[in-house]
Amino acid sequence: MDYSLIISRLGQQVREKRTNRGLTQAQLADLAGLTRQKVIAVEKGTLSVAMVAYARVLGALDCEFAVIPAVLPTLEELADLFE
């Protein structure tokens, strides 16, 4: 599986957790000790974001990484890869 799709999915999950908790990007950034721009990059799945930024965001959301078997990409995810 393409690593960019994995990072994209992680960013989407971070965004969902943040919005489900009623937090703005600025509030999450403050909790994680990051800039709002870094939180935006995490949520977009920007490939240059360091793993420590993901860890800080997930820690601020009281979440952690879990390694699970990959699932096949959806048609929408495949289309996004070719944009």
Rank of each mutant, 00 (worst) to 15 (best):
1 M>V: 13
1 M>I: 10
1 M>A: 15
2 D>N: 15
2 D>F: 10
2 D>L: 13
3 Y>N: 02
4 S>W: 04
4 S>T: 11
5 L>C: 02
6 I>A: 14
7 I>R: 14
9 R>L: 06
9 R>V: 02
9 R>N: 07
9 R>Q: 11
9 R>F: 02
10 L>P: 05
11 G>W: 05
12 Q>R: 14
12 Q>W: 00
13 Q>S: 13
14 V>A: 09
14 V>E: 00
14 V>S: 01
14 V>N: 01
15 R>E: 07
15 R>F: 01
16 E>D: 14
17 K>T: 07
17 K>M: 10
19 T>P: 06
19 T>D: 05
19 T>S: 14
19 T>N: 12
20 N>A: 13
21 R>T: 06
21 R>A: 09
21 R>V: 01
21 R>P: 00
22 G>L: 03
22 G>R: 05
22 G>S: 06
23 L>H: 04
23 L>D: 01
23 L>F: 10
24 T>A: 07
24 T>S: 15
24 T>F: 07
25 Q>T: 08
26 A>R: 12
26 A>V: 14
27 Q>S: 12
27 Q>R: 13
28 L>K: 02
29 A>P: 04
31 L>D: 01
32 A>K: 01
32 A>W: 01
33 G>K: 04
33 G>D: 10
34 L>D: 03
34 L>F: 05
35 T>F: 02
35 T>I: 00
36 R>A: 06
37 Q>F: 07
38 K>S: 13
38 K>N: 07
40 I>M: 05
41 A>E: 12
43 E>F: 02
44 K>R: 15
44 K>M: 10
44 K>C: 06
45 G>S: 02
45 G>L: 01
46 T>M: 09
48 S>K: 11
48 S>V: 09
48 S>R: 11
48 S>D: 14
48 S>W: 04
49 V>C: 13
49 V>G: 07
50 A>L: 06
51 M>V: 15
51 M>A: 13
51 M>N: 10
52 V>W: 05
52 V>M: 06
52 V>R: 07
53 A>S: 15
55 A>H: 11
56 R>Q: 14
57 V>G: 05
57 V>P: 06
57 V>D: 03
57 V>Q: 04
58 L>W: 09
58 L>H: 09
59 G>F: 08
62 D>H: 15
62 D>W: 04
65 F>Q: 14
65 F>N: 11
65 F>V: 12
65 F>E: 11
66 A>Q: 15
66 A>C: 08
66 A>S: 14
67 V>Y: 10
68 I>R: 15
68 I>C: 10
68 I>H: 14
68 I>E: 15
69 P>I: 04
69 P>D: 08
69 P>K: 10
70 A>W: 00
70 A>N: 08
71 V>G: 01
71 V>R: 06
72 L>H: 08
72 L>T: 11
73 P>F: 00
73 P>S: 06
73 P>T: 00
74 T>G: 01
74 T>N: 01
75 L>K: 08
76 E>S: 11
76 E>Q: 14
76 E>T: 11
76 E>A: 15
76 E>P: 00
77 E>T: 06
77 E>S: 08
77 E>M: 08
78 L>N: 05
78 L>V: 05
79 A>P: 03
80 D>M: 07
81 L>T: 03
81 L>E: 09
81 L>I: 01
81 L>R: 09
81 L>Y: 01
82 F>W: 07
82 F>A: 13
82 F>M: 12
83 E>V: 10
